[in-house]
Simulated scan of single mutants.
Amino acid sequence: MCRWLAYSGTPVLLETILYRPAHSLIDQSLHSKMGVETTNGDGFGVGWYGPDSDDGSPAVVREIGPAWSNRNLREIAGHVRSPLFFAHIRASTGTAVQQTNSHPFRHGRWMWMHNGAIAGFHRIRRDLALAVDPRLFPDIEGSTDSEMMFFLALTLGLEEDPPGAVARMVGLVERTGRAHGVEFPVQMTVAVTDGARLWAFRYSSEGASRSLFYSTRVDTLRALHPDMGFLRGVSDETRLIVSEPLGDLPGAWNEVPESTYGVVQPDGDEMVPFVPQAA
């Protein structure tokens, strides 16, 4: 499987989140504690939003090697500052280790990343591909189930209704998988953003989803840990969503409940039950 993080809040250097925490995503690429695999070395990617994009689209850098030794990632992280960014380290579930299969995936201003798998993907891939809008299909670059999920969600209305589109995507994958004899087709934690709002989903067909956590409100953490300098420099709206905690700071991390999605947005965060829908 994989490990990922999503950051939203006060603009920070990427290295502040990617490298400095005790159990940073870079450390997790070698020493994951909660993932299916301890090592996640089958590629990585970072995507971020900045002030200079004319169309609001994010910059995305993806590589096929491990994150822990990549000098270009270290260089980017020390010089890029962003208010919203994704980072992902990959452990392949069977598709090729190639640049186009590394996350995050981008389409226009939208960005998507995934941990998990579609069970029996090799059996149902053709049926799922035929369900993608023909106008979107040429933009699929890789061969992963993760990218297929993204383009199915785009097909099913992601730009207008992200939670509904993801619910319809999951419903379609489950119906297709079960038609081919797959009992539990979907295992996922997903992050998706349009550059303004951030949605994160935790769901699996068997009700035993991969780990996902969100950070405690910054004002609460300041009260708990007044000596933490980082907390003084970020806004109360700053949030992190992670596959596994970046450290063991007491009170800092909260598990996302099973079959739930959350949205981080300017007018107030929400946590909502997630139920697949018929496409």
Rank of each mutant, 00 (worst) to 15 (best):
T10F: 02
E15Q: 15
S24Y: 07
S29A: 07
T39M: 15
G45S: 03
W48Y: 06
D52V: 05
S53R: 04
G56S: 00
S57I: 03
P58S: 04
P58N: 02
R62C: 05
A67E: 06
S82V: 14
P83R: 15
L84H: 14
L84C: 13
L84D: 12
A87I: 00
T95Y: 15
H103E: 03
P104E: 00
P104H: 03
F105K: 00
W112L: 03
M113Y: 02
H114Q: 05
H122E: 09
L128S: 02
A129W: 05
V132H: 01
R135D: 14
P138K: 11
D139N: 11
D139R: 09
E141A: 14
E147V: 01
E147G: 07
M148L: 11
F151L: 06
L158Y: 12
D161Q: 14
P162S: 11
P163G: 11
A165K: 10
M169C: 10
L172N: 12
R175Q: 10
T176F: 13
G181T: 05
P185R: 04
V192W: 05
D194Y: 04
G195V: 06
A200T: 10
F201C: 01
Y203M: 01
Y203D: 09
R217G: 09
V218K: 04
V218H: 03
P226T: 07
M228S: 13
R232Q: 14
L240E: 07
L240S: 08
P245G: 02
L246A: 08
P250C: 03
P250A: 06
P250K: 13
T260L: 12
Y261E: 01
G262T: 05
V263A: 14
D269R: 12
E270R: 15
M271E: 15
P273T: 03
